[in-house]
Amino acid sequence: MRIGFTGLGTMGGPAALNLIKGGHDLTVCDLDRNRAEEHLALGAKWAETPAAAAQAADIVFTMVFGPKQIEQVAGGDDGLRSAMSAGQVWVDMTTNKPAFVRELAATFAENGVQLIDAPVTGAVDGARTGNMPQFAGGDEATVARIRPVMELMGPLHYMGPSGSGSVTKLASNQLWAIHATAMGEALVMAVKSGVDLSRAWDALKIGASESWCMHHDAPSVFAGHYDPSFTLDLCQKDLGLIVEACDDAGTAAPATRLVCTQFEAAREKYGGDKGELHVVKLEEDNAGVSLRLDGDWVPHWEK
């Protein structure tokens, strides 16, 4: 297929490479052309604007920072709205506001364009290896038709009508933020109470305490870099969307709101450009405990 892809950041860049390796004709666009060097070397074409990337494409993928950036990508003379027409499919993989997604879907449908919201998870190693889960909302028949393309990037889960993918991604990030905060509290408590860190980690990866976060993210804490591939600024952007979704749904979500304050405290102390797991470092520093652990902790974005 002919594919346009706007947004070659931490997740979008490697995801787009998997589409090229799958044999598709890609035109890529990003604010920084340097991010496209590997894509262009593999045969992709360059577009200066999202509109140019979308012209003549069967499917248009976007993956940018958040709702404000999607609004810019969609609108204006250089945006998707000016370039897309009946029969084309737009797949937005940005973590977005569900209500905004539905609004965009209705607007683009007026021109015969199907919008599928399909935000992703799985961290950079998932994007690199083609194991990046996607949560899709929108027309089910359209999702079924483009499934072979999307599955080149990772498992695809159809979640329901427009906006359902975005809601699911927010719920996924909601749990991750709670798990990451709880992981820090549990490991710090165990170590300060005299339990060997390596043994504590082995024990907390099994049974009732097991989580993806404990398996995948704890090594970033042990190594001391706290995973710079996803920043505290991005965490707070997502948590803002999550709290808004809770408000829209009328849920109390006390744990989520408390965790939001912890991430904000970490951002204020260490800086928004620092790695997401500084929420664990906050607990370490408050307790006077270090969770450094000797080991060959290969960063997940290099796997």
Score class of each variant (00 low, 15 high):
158 Y>S: 01
246 C>P: 03
301 W>C: 04
162 S>W: 03
246 C>N: 11
81 R>S: 12
199 R>L: 12
243 V>G: 05
17 L>M: 15
98 P>H: 08
267 R>V: 01
33 R>I: 11
193 S>L: 15
248 D>V: 07
55 Q>R: 15
211 S>Y: 03
70 I>F: 06
292 R>E: 00
86 A>S: 15
174 Q>Y: 00
101 V>S: 09
130 G>S: 13
133 P>H: 12
247 D>V: 08
4 G>A: 04
177 A>R: 05
225 H>K: 07
224 G>W: 07
13 G>T: 06
129 T>K: 14
27 T>C: 14
292 R>A: 14
44 A>N: 14
109 A>K: 13
40 L>S: 00
69 Q>C: 00
188 V>N: 03
38 E>Y: 12
90 W>H: 13
73 V>L: 09
29 C>M: 08
43 G>D: 13
202 D>N: 13
37 E>P: 02
114 Q>D: 13
84 M>L: 15
114 Q>F: 04
269 K>V: 10
100 F>L: 14
191 V>W: 06
202 D>L: 06
79 G>P: 06
268 E>N: 14
85 S>P: 04
74 A>Q: 04
151 E>T: 04
88 Q>P: 11
203 A>L: 08
115 L>I: 13
121 T>E: 07
34 N>W: 10
65 F>N: 05
17 L>R: 12
40 L>K: 09
11 M>W: 05
245 A>F: 09
90 W>P: 03
200 A>R: 05
24 H>F: 09
17 L>Y: 08
52 A>E: 12
278 H>R: 13
161 P>V: 02
24 H>S: 10
163 G>V: 06
206 I>A: 12
100 F>W: 08
208 A>W: 01
152 L>W: 02
243 V>D: 10
303 K>N: 00
1 M>Y: 08
230 F>Y: 13
264 E>L: 09
170 L>F: 06
281 K>P: 05
199 R>S: 07
176 W>N: 06
153 M>K: 04
174 Q>W: 11
192 K>Q: 15
249 A>V: 10
297 W>K: 02
224 G>S: 10
9 G>F: 13
149 V>L: 12
295 G>S: 02
156 L>Q: 06
234 L>I: 09
136 A>P: 04
89 V>L: 07
297 W>A: 02
62 T>V: 11
108 F>I: 08
83 A>M: 03
66 G>D: 07
226 Y>V: 07
113 V>T: 09
252 A>H: 00
92 D>Q: 15
170 L>W: 05
56 A>L: 10
21 K>P: 01
247 D>Y: 09
281 K>Q: 15
102 R>W: 08
126 G>T: 11
105 A>D: 08
148 P>G: 05
111 N>V: 15
95 T>H: 07
27 T>F: 11
8 L>G: 08
109 A>H: 02
36 A>Q: 00
232 L>P: 01
176 W>Y: 12
240 G>F: 01
147 R>P: 05
155 P>L: 03
